[in-house]
Design a protein around this nucleic acid. Sequence first.
DNA 1: TTGCATCGTTCTATTGATAGGACGCTGCGT
DNA 2: ACGCAGCGTCCTATCAATAGAACGATGCAA
Lengths: 335, 335
Amino acid sequence: MQDLNDLYYFVQVVEHGGFAAAARATGTQKSRLSRRIAMLEDRIGVRLIQRSPRRFFVTDVGREYYQRCVAVLIEAEAADAFIAQHQGEPQGSLRVSCPTALISFQFGRLFARFMTAHPKISLQLESTNRRVDVIAEGFDVSIRVRFPPLERSELVMRKLDDSSQYLVARPGFLKEPIGEPAELAGLPSLAWTSATHSYEWRLESADGEQAVVRHEPRFLTDDMAALREAALDGAGIVQLPTMMIWKDLAAGALVPVLPQWRPASGIVHAVFPSRRGLLPSVRTFIDFLAQECTADRLTVDESLAWPARPPHITTEGIRRPGDPTRKRKDAIGTI
Amino acid sequence: MQDLNDLYYFVQVVEHGGFAAAARATGTQKSRLSRRIAMLEDRIGVRLIQRSPRRFFVTDVGREYYQRCVAVLIEAEAADAFIAQHQGEPQGSLRVSCPTALISFQFGRLFARFMTAHPKISLQLESTNRRVDVIAEGFDVSIRVRFPPLERSELVMRKLDDSSQYLVARPGFLKEPIGEPAELAGLPSLAWTSATHSYEWRLESADGEQAVVRHEPRFLTDDMAALREAALDGAGIVQLPTMMIWKDLAAGALVPVLPQWRPASGIVHAVFPSRRGLLPSVRTFIDFLAQECTADRLTVDESLAWPARPPHITTEGIRRPGDPTRKRKDAIGTI
DNA sequence: TTGCATCGTTCTATTGATAGGACGCTGCGT
DNA sequence: ACGCAGCGTCCTATCAATAGAACGATGCAA
């Protein structure tokens, strides 16, 4: 059988008016183009292109053959377009896990919008704060928040959002404003239950300085809404995600403690078993979440009149050797 | 870029209902088909065929994709058909050289028939006995007769005919029949002017014996028709091509001298600059000549009631090391 | 129930295509 | 007239695809 790819090469060479230009345009070696066109001409027994160094023109036969080869490529593109369109209208059922708090203040609305936008997809959502076993438990996607450095994983990961954070309390809770992290010591605090039972705030200043403050929370829970309620009632100082409390901040119901220092951000990401043969519904879901998170972040940033995080402080600032973020970027770069 | 050949493989597998059947039908290894379809599915992210040993069915997406791939192949076949049609009706002008004698007794009629069969082709024929420089003088084809071993050439060669020969004289010229080559010595002879000015008959017997007889022609010319006329007039013994004198032999106007011995045959061949990018008109012309020569030879063989040459005596019998016939055969094997 | 023929997939030694550089040629600018 | 940049082609070490065999799975006949 003939090599259909030769038709593609031929079209590229003709359209670019030469082997060198076609090679540059397509990222293909010109020796390959030269050889493949020569082989095509040998096989069909016709000179398609008259050429020598510096001279290049397509024969009459070559011109007509080119038109037919273009028709081949148009049909091939139509086949690709069909696949792309097919993938563009995904359907089926998705099993997703998501931390409870993220559902309530950020992703719940996104899931609802997704289902409105994609009537043919069903969603089975497990609201959980535990680290699910994606493969063994049969999840298509698991949404997680982790603070860098992220641990290695066999799963593929797609970053959805930065989880910028605020250290806040009710107005008036502090008898006097404080200006240094060290002044936080001994103040009442509230926190998310930690498996390690050790609690600290990791803070960064606007000019890149970092500080770590240990504290002993007077209120521990794995219910983030309860933490927010307690803070609103003046029970203490707590670190909470921007997305959860941006309206409270805008309304003045909560105020930042140590405004010149910010807690390190987490990374909200989706993990799934494999990129290969990813169902269109899963792909669409993840793309949708990434897109909506970006849009929501812009809304919040405009409302708070400053970036969700100081621009010069990024997750890269705390990257360590063996940091899986580089691998992750490689892994999802082609999605 | 994607591999367009995968579309072909996919269509073949679908149309044959399996990899093994498609492999048999197309002469392609099933491992290749298996791998290429798997790669295609990976690349487009869609399962096209659900299969396991003994179970095979095309998915809905696969069925629709198949339709589009068929469209691609239809266009590719249309491109091929265009080329074939283009080649099927050759046109243009041919410049050909041919020895004068060959024109008169063999090829003149063939050229006329060719032009009748191909109204769109013009022929520019140079009747010449000199060895033309095909490339420098701009010939498309040069027709030649040479006796083995043929010398090497940069030109591509296509054998057209064996030029079997007869050693003949007018009936009654010989007072007594002769039976051995040695008896030819001293008899009057006629010959084609040789550049080397040395004349010999190289003869072969029915049982493969070979003999060389030197002679001093009393008539030398480069006009083969004149040689024939002189022989018909009883001027002497001459070696002439079968095609030239087969009617004289059939009519008894000329008789073979030494019927048990035959001169070695020459090879009528066409030479042309290159096989690559051979114009359809040139290809058609050469094919036509080869075909007509074969047909004419059969006619002559039947008329003379014996083969133009004894079947066991061939040019291979006098092949020498470095003989270009082997290379020539390799060179033209794919035309 | 079992054995067997044939399926699709995988593996690896072999084969063929390719990348990248070298080369000769050509047209253009000086 | 000459030098040079860039062309298309060719060469070869390297890389990737393939042929062919082996393997496990499956359906059917005995």
